[in-house]
Design a protein around this nucleic acid. Structure first.
Length: 483
DNA sequence: TGGGGTTAT
DNA sequence: ATAACCC
């Protein structure tokens, strides 16, 4: 394409070039332009786009399912559709459908308040996350078909980096299709904006892909949700919530400041959590503009360089963090909370329950955890939210017993976890727990042994000679290409 | 306040 | 091992 741009156009600024380019493209699409000029226009147009790898031209979508647990429950039991529905975990209603919200019920209300507000409210128990987790991964896997780079955030949100996919579509588009590009869904904008501007083309294509994603999620899984399309994760996430159930919004670059200013408090910025908000408020910072204009030096001294620089950039709507593929989970955990657990037998029974579910999950996954962790929460603690944990490696002979489908690993795992418990809690003293959680982490693929090493050909055997205390091996089937 | 998850220190 | 963040 070098040399295509005429010399006399070299001095013009970029915005002027962009709108002129579209006028010329539209004129070309009308059908009157001679062949060579039309071709020049298309090449010139592609020249105006920023390089695909440049950080300012990323296209990110944030997909956020509507009241996810409630949707899953309505799919499981269609009789719940049309009724006000809440999903309950212990005394908390963690989410509810839109029928319930119309009647004044809010997310994360206590069950008592919710029933008071809405006596007809139907409640289902959502403490077992199995079906939610399975549906959640189906959504992520479906989105991965559009672009392999998908990052999960909780069970109901996903980020997808569409930059490369958008680039591919742009290059396949014909002249007439290029000028006829339209947005899908809402545009976040207070000012009037020229959608035909070249600077917006990638985001428009992104909005169309987002619409296709939502269609696929609805058609194949029966779930509705919102999407936000923008140039980074922060903005995509913020803009996805602008039009709320089952709609999507694209953020054009000139409106990004409006979007961050629309947040009335810094705690609304994803990445600024409870603790940081408190520390910022102590510094007199409460609005987004407060944070933007606050001294960087003082902020760095107060919060440390990394946090200070990151959150101050966030306040300007800047976020260069990449979308990182989540892939399979890094850990599996099961927890249960209760009013009181204060004896060894109670603890052991709870741990057996938690482990039974975990062993099933680990079996399904196929990988092997090499670390177990026990987490507890004590009652009397002045900090009710604080937890203590102990972890240890899982002995290799126990790892071997995992994932065989039966419960060979149950007894040894209970013994290990009870040791961790005794390490944390002095059982000669009275104790009062309000939560127990067991976590399997440090997951490794079954065969890490590489071709050409002895371990690759020798696979540990469970069936023979266990009494000797020595490991026994069977020869693996070999193939000619192994040699 | 539940039952999960992640990364940084 | 804990602390922060996310849902």
């Amino acid at each position: 394409t070098q040399g295509v741009e005429p010399e006399e156009e070299g001095g013009r600024d970029q915005e002027e070039d962009a709108s002129r380019a579209m006028e010329r493209l539209e004129a070309g699409a009308a059908g009157s332009s001679p062949e060579p000029e039309e071709s020049d226009d298309l090449l010139w147009f592609h020249d105006q786009l920023e390089p695909a790898g440049s950080s300012s031209s990323r296209v990110i979508v944030h997909v956020d399912l509507d009241c996810f647990y409630a949707q899953v429950e309505m799919i499981s039991n269609p009789e719940l559709k049309g009724k006000p529905l809440g999903v309950q975990q212990k005394s908390l209603m963690v989410t509810c459908n839109y029928e319930a919200r119309k009647l004044g019920v809010k997310k994360c209300m206590s069950v008592r308040d919710a029933k008071e507000k809405c006596p007809q409210l139907v409640l289902v128990n959502g403490e077992d996350l199995t079906r939610y987790r399975e549906m959640s991964y189906k959504v992520t896997e479906l989105l991965e078909e559009f672009s392999p780079v998908v990052e999960r955030l909780g069970f109901d949100e996903n980020f997808v980096d569409l930059t490369v996919v958008v680039e591919k579509r742009l290059q396949q588009l014909q002249r007439d299709e290029l000028s006829a590009l339209t947005v899908s869904g809402h545009v976040y904008s207070n000012q009037s904006v020229n959608l035909q501007d070249v600077l917006h083309i990638r985001l428009l294509v992104g909005s169309q892909i987002a619409a296709e994603m939502r269609e696929a999620v609805y058609n194949q899984l029966g779930l509705t949700g919102c999407a936000g399309v923008a140039s980074n994760k922060l903005l995509a996430k913020l803009v996805s919530g602008v039009f709320k159930p089952n709609q999507q919004t694209v953020l054009l670059p000139e409106s990004s400041q409006d979007l961050v200013y629309s947040l009335n408090h810094i705690k609304k910025i994803p990445g600024i959590g409870y603790k940081t908000t408190k520390r910022l408020e102590a510094l007199g910072i409460s609005s987004v503009r407060d944070l933007q204009t606050f001294s960087s030096k003082i902020l760095e001294k107060e919060l440390g360089l990394a946090v200070a620089q990151r959150i101050q950039k966030l306040s300007f709507g800047e976020d260069d963090s990449p979308v990182t593929s989540s892939g399979p989970p890094q850990s599996f955990s099961e927890e249960d909370s209760f009013k009181k657990c204060s004896s060894e037998v109670e603890v052991k029974n709870k741990i057996e329950e938690l482990l039974a579910s975990l062993l099933n999950r680990v079996c399904q996954d196929g990988r092997k955890p090499h670390t177990v962790r026990l987490i507890i929460r004590r009652h009397s603690s002045e900090k009710p939210w604080s937890r203590e944990s102990r972890q240890c490696p899982i002995p290799s002979h126990v790892i071997q017993k995992l994932g065989t489908g039966n419960y060979d690993a149950m007894t040894p795992m209970v013994d290990i976890v009870m040791k961790l418990f005794r390490n944390m809690v002095n059982m000669k003293m009275p104790f009062h727990l309000t939560l127990l959680s067991v976590c399997f982490c440090n997951l490794k693929a079954l065969n890490t042994a590489k071709k050409g090493t002895i371990d690759y050909y020798l696979t540990p055997s469970l069936s023979t000679t266990s009494r000797s205390g020595k490991r026994s091996f069977k020869m693996k089937d070999t193939h000619m290409e192994d040699f």
